[in-house]
Design a protein around this nucleic acid. Structure first.
Lengths: 200, 200, 200, 200
DNA sequence: GATGAATGAGGCTTCATTCAT
DNA sequence: AATGAATGAAGCCTCATTCAT
């Protein structure tokens, strides 16, 4: 029972942090603003995070863990790149709809070089990319030229990027639809697909 | 001659700002650090920018102006999407090589919603995308389904994104080569290209 | 029996307070540090002391009570200043050996004017000094010129001072020996002794 | 001219620091209280001292430097211990009269072990004590048994101690007079003087 | 025009104190 | 009774901004 309260508060802190960072930027997100938005005292927040940086890093790590785990799960169980990409895009867009700022937050920290990438991150990412490539070569869905870097840029970077731009409201301000999932997947698969010119 | 001196100093301020923001983050980039890195006094900097936020916004605007002008120039003069994309990718990668932090800076502010997009921005972007689509439809390089948003996400977002991930040193830490230009262009064109399945 | 437990805990609190204040300074001695060092909860500590200041004041008072009682006992029972001084010096040095921080603590608070001297303090001190002088005049151990203030400065101040400097490790870092007792007593008696020049 | 202003302000900071520490204790002396008492802004203070600790340490060092220099000067030029002690006591009491808190401040930091003694301190102190002893042996003013430690405890410790107790207003609250100088010197010389019993 | 010293608002963090359990 | 989680006031410090020189 007491545990429940804690979890709720910690979640409130996380939610408030993400929200504040997304709205006000990293530098505009003060601890006291976050705490008051989360409905907890400043001191309470410090019981769980040693400081502002640690709070952001923990959330950053959590997000990337989540994304990586999502893909790791898939690359070990699915039999086609299309299924994996579809599932990934669908999941991310669903998150973007239900917790729009979550994706934004991740994208923002990814572009802030003063925040280090989580430690396990590189290993997991390499693992994911290599398995995807291997699978794609087998199924003929991925061109021989595609590198780990390209896979990552397209899949993770590309999707986060799309969400970021949608949320920037440059073109229109609407939720992600099933159609968006289909289209995005299609684009990604096309980009990855074997080059018909290279028919050697 | 006096003008010349000023231009040099203003450029030094801009360069120092970009560099400092990229290395230390927005909150870590203090005006005095920027000024001293630029070799000007704090007071001098304030003669040209009303404050820190205005300085960043001016640079942000400038970057997007530059990117948009780059593309506007092209869409009005080139006759194939491929040429435009090639030129754009090449130019951005060259900047990424010579002034790596410049791209980083733009990408960072693009993901920071507390910085508004420049006013003219939306109009220019729409203009660019629509002309590209129109051209692509004529030349058969762009699928009928492709929207403005997709064009922008792929072209501008995608390229900035690639630079960002390369600079994050997730995979390898190398300069952008001509090969990178070719490959990136290829991927983008593939993604945009008419869908062979949709042959209805 | 229940009482016994309490006494132990209160003593633990006192010990921990003295230790922490001496090591970390007053501002560095947090209640939670003290409580955890004492093995009691913060809340428990607050059952006995209304706050940090009261805790320190109570200990300060206790120390001076102890010192004064020590001397009061003696001045009413001993027949020579030498015996009294010897006993006092011996006792203080023993405490300095067994609980070094106890003396340090007293000395520190004595020099901190934001802590008031205990109420009964002045009366007791005057009493002690006057009886010592009276006795000293009778036995010829104390010069006619010696005032209450001088007695106190030499005896209490002087001894605490010596302990403080020894513990500061300016010269050497050793325990107080019987020799130290003898020497100190000798110095004090010499200083107090009738001035041979003033043989008028 | 500009320099003059600075010196005044720095002196105001020093004065305010000493005053605040003496009245409110080290822990009660907040930077903002010190700055406002000194009539400078908080930021100004930080231009000269990296933090609260550094401010206190600098003053601590300065005081001991002063005291040591006072004595070093004397031990190299005077020909009797009496002259040196008289001069020292006179000087310290004069300071105690004109800037009472200066001495108090020094005494307080001396009893706070969380503040290190200045680096040169030990060397200077040893130097002073040894020269005093050497001189005293030659002139017959100092007993063979007197150690460095005792010299220091009596001379520096003793005098600071006296000032501290006088200022604590335990007995009376009056300025230091020429008579106090004479008496104190007399006591110190008596304590140091060769022991008539030890006529072996 | 240029400078950078000076200001003080506001951010981060600690910790004395309270109070529900 | 005993605990220690929770609070938020207050301290330290930084730095955007101003302004006298």
């Amino acid at each position: 029972m007491a545990r429940q309260v804690d979890e709720n508060k910690i979640n409130a802190i996380k939610k408030a942090t993400v929200e504040t960072v997304v709205i006000d930027g990293i530098s505009g997100a003060s601890i006291s603003k976050i705490a008051s938005k989360a409905g907890v005292s400043v001191g309470y927040l410090y019981r769980f995070y040693k400081g502002k940086r640690e709070l952001l890093e923990a959330l950053f790590e959590e997000r990337f863990q989540m994304i990586n785990n999502l893909l790791l799960d898939q690359v070990y169980t699915q039999n086609s790149v299309e299924d994996i990409v579809t599932f990934f895009v669908k999941t991310i867009y669903e998150i973007a709809n239900t917790r729009p700022q979550s994706i934004s937050f991740t994208h923002k920290l990814l572009s802030d070089f003063s925040f280090e990438l989580p430690k396990e991150f590189k290993k997991d990412v390499t693992n994911i990319c290599q398995r995807l490539i291997k699978l794609g070569h087998k199924t003929g869905e991925i061109d021989a030229d595609i590198t780990d870097e390209i896979i990552y840029v397209l899949l993770v970077g590309g999707v986060l990027n799309f969400v970021n731009i949608r949320q920037r409201r440059i073109f229109e301000d609407k939720e992600f639809t099933q159609e968006d999932v289909v289209k995005t997947t299609e684009l990604l698969l096309k980009a990855l697909s074997p080059n018909s010119k290279n028919s050697n």
